[in-house]
Design a protein around this nucleic acid. Structure first.
Lengths: 163, 163
DNA sequence: CGCGATTCAATTGCGCACAACTAAATCGTG
DNA sequence: CACGATTTAGTTGTGCGCAATTGAATCGCG
């Protein structure tokens, strides 16, 4: 084990440039594959995957300022503003400036937006079947990914702090 | 365990709409967090993350038609054509139509593109440290993600076939 | 109360992802 | 050899993601 490590130390840097495709590329590919399945499944709801995420949050919380929405989804106003405008055009949400704080915009599902929830209940089941994983595996994977995300976020704020 | 399962069977569909944020959202968030770290690390190379992936493939294979490049990266010409044009403008690659098949365009790193490899050798190490994972964990995660991607791709081609 | 700092959404600009389509070159079969 | 099918890049259009900037509203401190 140690000798293997010593051998590894002599690995030309060049090989690392192949090796490192591993996590990042796999992650990127998985993310895009997931997106493709969602595109398929959400097509008859008329939603894209990020729009679906927004609706999930709104179904759960009812009404939120754009800021809070962004915190739930890790998205900023540069992404959300046009997205919400499209959802409003589609008649699924309404946006109106908060009465007591004119800087804030409250986003709320319309009746039609709420109704869409009924047609979305089948989505998670279809996605789950597409993954081919059981619930425990999914939970485990999710935990790992969340840890990974936290580590990456920490690195972005303090690149030197990570080992 | 079984009784827990039986209880679960009565879980309102509504809760699934929260539960399902799990994998897909975690995956999406992790992918974007990764992208953010790459943005940081690749900044002084003047590359974006997808551009870096293209250069990795070219460093390994030397010269490839756009088609082959797309197969390695799971990207189509709609993504690659403009990306390669930007790399060409940056002086890192050259594109020229194949002599024996005028439909095909060969992409090849320039001397400058090859030289960039020397400045990229430190990237994998920095990314690895950002993940906070050891090699075994990374390998395991990669394997799981690749299986997931394969399952998703299979689903896209035959949605009914998956359990 | 007044004014500088902060908070918030929106906008701009750039790049990636992907579907749909175009156009050119090549291949294959009669 | 000719012609229809296929292969290959490129283009167009839409949407997401993010950095940077803008401008309005609010807050806080003196």
């Amino acid at each position: 084990m140690l000798s293997a490590t010593l051998k590894r130390m002599t690995t030309p840097a060049t090989d690392w440039l192949r090796l490192d495709q591993q996590i990042c590329f796999s992650l990127n590919a998985a993310s895009r594959a997931f997106n493709g399945v969602y595109r398929l499944v959400l097509k008859d709801l008329g939603l894209t995957y990020p729009q679906y995420l927004v609706m999930l949050v709104l179904w759960e919380h009812g009404e939120l300022p754009v800021k809070k929405l962004g915190e739930h989804l890790r998205l900023d106003s540069g992404t959300l503003s046009p997205l919400l405008k499209r959802l409003e055009t589609a008649g699924l949400v309404r946006r109106e400036r908060s009465a007591h704080d004119e800087r804030s915009v409250e986003v709320r599902p319309t009746a039609e937006g709420v109704a869409l929830r009924e047609r979305a209940v089948g989505v998670p089941r279809r996605i789950a079947s597409a993954t081919g994983l059981d619930l425990a595996e999914v939970q485990d994977l999710r935990t790992r990914l969340d840890r990974l995300t936290a580590a990456m976020d920490a690195y972005r704020e303090e690149p030197s702090a990570s080992a």
